[in-house]
């Protein structure tokens, strides 16, 4: 099987400071990869390099495109990369308001990606938006309300609907449950797990919450100071951490 995303030797520096260095891994179709580590360990830098928001200083990010097969997204032209990021890729921000248009209704938010790839039939766009609001458990009657009137959990679910409406194959998630209370988190995780399984999505999830990766991720990478210190199957890394930092991370979780 060919990997959907193949990352080789990605590095990003901020002056003398290392953002992330020498990161390599393969992600296969349908697989969910978790990236954990403390604040400042380079998780978000790495994610942004992979999603094309930052240009890495070195390395390749090869994506298996539908039309032309594996292609390095770092060196591909900007129109191509932006096309990918509104069709085959999705990016879920930690703060829903970074990923939503707060002045546009929920339906418009979900429909934007459809219109960006050429949908020009109002009825169909609205039908799809309604369908997706229901799939993320938002009452379809709220389709014309602005996200400013939504709760934090609803905003996050709306952001997910807006991203998944074009049927992407790879989802980047940056702390998708950050800032939500635990019961809302649990519901969101449940929803995400269902969507990932149903749609056969591949995903890369950056988080500092080990419970999130335990539930969602098949494989796990632990980052510290911009480097990957340990990688493996999620349960293996969490139950039998080998690196001193992974051990510290796992033992830091409060048991209630």
């Amino acid at each position: 099987m060919r990997p959907l995303l193949s990352v080789q030797g990605v590095a990003k520096r901020y002056g003398a400071h290392i953002g992330c260095a020498d990161v390599s891994f393969d992600l296969y179709p349908g697989e969910v990869m978790g990236i954990v580590g403390e604040s400042g360990s380079g998780k978000s830098t790495l994610l942004n390099c992979m999603a094309g928001h930052l240009a890495p200083d070195a390395g390749q990010v090869v994506f298996d495109t539908r039309a032309e097969g594996p292609k390095d997204t770092v060196t591909m032209s900007e129109p191509e990369r932006r096309m990918l990021s509104r069709t085959d890729w999705a990016f879920v921000h930690q703060h829903a308001r970074d990923g939503l248009r707060m002045g546009v209704s929920a339906g418009g938010n979900v429909g934007e990606r459809l219109m960006a790839v050429g949908a020009r039939h109002y009825g169909e766009i609205r039908g799809k938006a309604t369908d997706w609001l229901e799939r993320v458990e938002i009452d379809a009657a709220r389709i014309d309300d602005r996200p400013t009137t939504f709760s934090g959990g609803m905003q996050q679910r709306l952001q997910i609907a807006r991203n998944l409406v074009t049927g992407p194959r790879l989802v980047f998630m940056d702390e998708p449950t950050g800032g939500l209370d635990v019961s809302v988190q649990a519901r969101l995780l449940d929803l995400l797990r269902g969507l990932v399984r149903d749609m056969g999505l591949s995903a890369i999830i950056v988080t500092h919450d080990l419970a999130v990766v335990r539930l969602l991720a098949d494989r796990l990478m632990v980052m510290k100071s911009g480097r990957v210190v340990e990688a493996g199957l999620t349960d293996q890394v969490l139950d039998d951490p080998q690196h001193a930092y992974s051990q510290l991370l796992v033992s830091s979780v409060l048991q209630v």
């Binding site: 509104r86 248009r101 546009v104 339906g107 418009g108 429909g111 934007e112 990606r113 219109m115 960006a116 790839v117 020009r120 109002y122 766009i125």
Partner: peptide, 8 residues
């Protein structure tokens, strides 16, 4: 696409 969001 954004222009159509306005019309939507």
């Amino acid at each position: 696409g954004l222009m159509h969001v306005k019309l939507y």
